[in-house]
Structure formats: structure tokens, C-alpha cells
Design a protein around this nucleic acid. Sequence first.
DNA 1: CCCTGATTCGC
DNA 2: GCGAATCAGG
Length: 128
Amino acid sequence: MSWTDERVQRLKELWSQGLSASEIADMLGDITRNAVIGKAHRLGLSGRPSPIKKKPSRGATILALTERMCKWPVGDPKHQDFHFCGKQALPGLPYCAEHAALAYQPSSSSKKARDEDRSSGDRSVGVA
DNA sequence: CCCTGATTCGC
DNA sequence: GCGAATCAGG
């Protein structure tokens, strides 16, 4: 599949819209995200106002998150220290693996529930 | 492990 | 020029 003018147009359009390479690749079809990025780079793109919060000097996007960003409030919402985890959120969950584990902890869990049950439930005096 | 974009290397 | 591979990072 060669890059036709239409495809390049679509690429640039979607890219500028903030879509991720994988998304664009998926839309165009028959192409991987690498191809999209590669073409984008050749076109002179790569520096689009993407949802990337930091400035990737080179090599890798420090926070390559767009949609699956971990939305875990860290610090204080009223303090400058307030920031989101930004890590890879689990598919389906708004948090990353770490915070998802924290958020989805098995409630308070009855750690003493069984203890109570045992003392009260086991009262056979010896009827039979 | 998942995903992100960037750069590099082979065809 | 194209695209896979690799790199780098949370």
C-alpha cells in the first residue's frame, strides 16, 4: 500500500487532530502504527500538539498516554503538587495497574467476621 | 505487559 | 520512500 495523496491527507488530518499513531493506523487500515509514525516523521510532522504533556526530547515519550492515562489524583487537588499518575491505565479501568489495585481492593473485608461466626455458631451443647 | 512516539536500519 | 525493528519511558 503506497501512500497516496489522500492517505497522506488523512494521516496529517488525524495526526493534527491529536489521534495516536495506532489510532490513525487503525483508521487507514492495512498499516501499522510504525508506518504512520514513519510517514509522519518523513512528512515533517512529529511535533504536533498531541496530548503528550511533557516534551519528548528524543527516544521516547515520557508519558505516552492519551486515553488510557491513569487518572489517579496524587497529592492535593488544591496544591501544585497535584498531578495524575499518567501511567498506563488498565483496559476498562481509569487507573493504572498500581492504582487500580488500590482502588479495587476487596472492600474492608470481614477480617473478623468469621471469628464472630465461629463463637456464636458453634454452641452445640450435646443434644445429639 | 500495556501503550506511546522517535529514531534507525534494511529492503 | 516505506515500514519493521528497536529504543526509551511510565
